[in-house]
């Protein structure tokens, strides 16, 4: 049996997470509100924020933009693999860390696959500006799952050996049944989950298309959940196939209809990646890794985030032809009759 890092809870402890649900209003009520209201009401300084999606798929981009406009301090961010969502939060910190700051990340991967590394992650990590805790994709997914199951930990067959066990709070123990080493991962119960889905009703029953990522687990593990959706639909339509409901209403606190809410990333059935825009954002941040000041990144934020009232103002800056082209590219991926 091997003891690693000292244990401490970075979101809610399992008992606190239980208590948060005990005290929650679980009524089936209308949870529609503006994104501004949702972010202001349900996210606090110092929160552990569970980020939905996977790399640039169905990331809660509109929510991160609103968080940037609002300003938050000392957030802990938790996810498995992410790209644009944390990039937008981290970029805000690079522009002005008195307005927005991240204290810590608990993650498996922060980059962009074919779109390369994240200059934001490199900038903050290489300068020691954020606390790092490395896990794997399955580790983080299983930690959220443990949180969603109401368990304090979950056994998994990794991380074993290598350096991940000494970069995180896993404990490797001898299995009481087989006698072989097994990893025990502490549950993750974030204070708040930020998640974009395909469809939801006003109560927060959600339908997800394409990969589920780890969204249901994050929502069920968190004390509060903000949902943005491509399409707000009637309760009757959502419940016409109850087994398709990925996140049930009692786990949800706010529902906001935000078409293109994961753009310039991908949302299954709605739009494919806008790689050009991902590169534009990265180019503005990458120069800071080479020691240049924040001018270019600040100009990006002023134009696309601070200079607009809402996510619609961000979308208005893309030519209609581009938005349609990205919609068409995704339509090719999942051909359907109109």
């Amino acid at each position: 049996m091997e003891n690693n890092a000292e244990m401490y809870w970075t979101g809610l402890s399992p008992d606190e997470a239980r208590e948060a649900l005990v005290n929650k209003d679980k009524s089936m009520r209308d949870k529609r509100m503006s994104l501004k209201e949702a972010v202001d009401k349900f996210i606090k300084d110092g929160d552990n924020v569970g980020v939905g999606g996977f790399v640039n798929i169905r990331q809660p981009i509109a929510i991160t933009h609103e968080m940037v406009r609002h300003g938050f301090k000392d957030l802990t961010l938790s996810w498995q693999s992410a790209g644009l969502g944390p990039d937008y939060l981290a970029g805000a910190m690079m522009v002005d860390d008195s307005h927005f700051s991240i204290k810590r990340v608990e993650i498996a991967y922060w980059a962009h696959e074919s779109f390369g590394l994240s200059p934001m992650f490199r900038y903050l990590a290489e300068r020691g500006k954020i606390e790092l805790e490395d896990w794997s994709n399955y580790n983080m997914s299983a930690r959220f799952k443990a949180g969603s199951m109401g368990l304090p930990f979950i056994p998994t067959r990794g991380p074993m050996a290598g350096d991940i066990p000494s970069s995180c709070r896993t404990k490797i123990m001898d299995c009481p049944f087989t006698g072989r080493p097994i990893a025990l991962l502490p549950a993750s119960n974030p204070d708040v989950a930020i998640i974009h889905v395909n469809a939801a009703d006003k109560y927060g029953n959600c339908i997800i298309r394409g990969t589920d990522c780890t969204c249901a687990e994050i929502a069920m593990a968190s004390a509060r959940t903000i949902i943005t959706c491509e399409q707000l639909v009637s309760h009757e339509l959502i419940t016409s196939s109850p087994k398709e409901v990925g996140i049930p209403f009692p786990a949800v606190d706010a529902v906001v209809e935000v078409p293109y809410g994961a753009y310039p990333g991908l949302c299954r059935r709605h739009y494919y990646f806008n790689g050009d825009h991902i590169r534009e954002l990265h180019a503005a941040a990458a120069v800071m890794c080479k020691g240049e000041p924040a001018d270019k990144l600040k100009a990006y934020y002023d134009k696309y985030i601070f200079g607009v009232e809402s996510f619609e103002g961000f979308l208005e800056q893309f030519p209609l032809s581009k938005l349609l082209a990205d919609q068409k590219a995704e339509a090719y991926n999942c051909e359907r009759l109109a």
Binding site: A108, F121, A125, L132, S136, N137, N139, G158, P159, G162
Partner: peptide
Amino acid sequence: YQTPKVRLPGSGGASD
């Protein structure tokens, strides 16, 4: 570890 010379993406699912 907290101040890497070059920070790479991380495990993703590779270690799993």
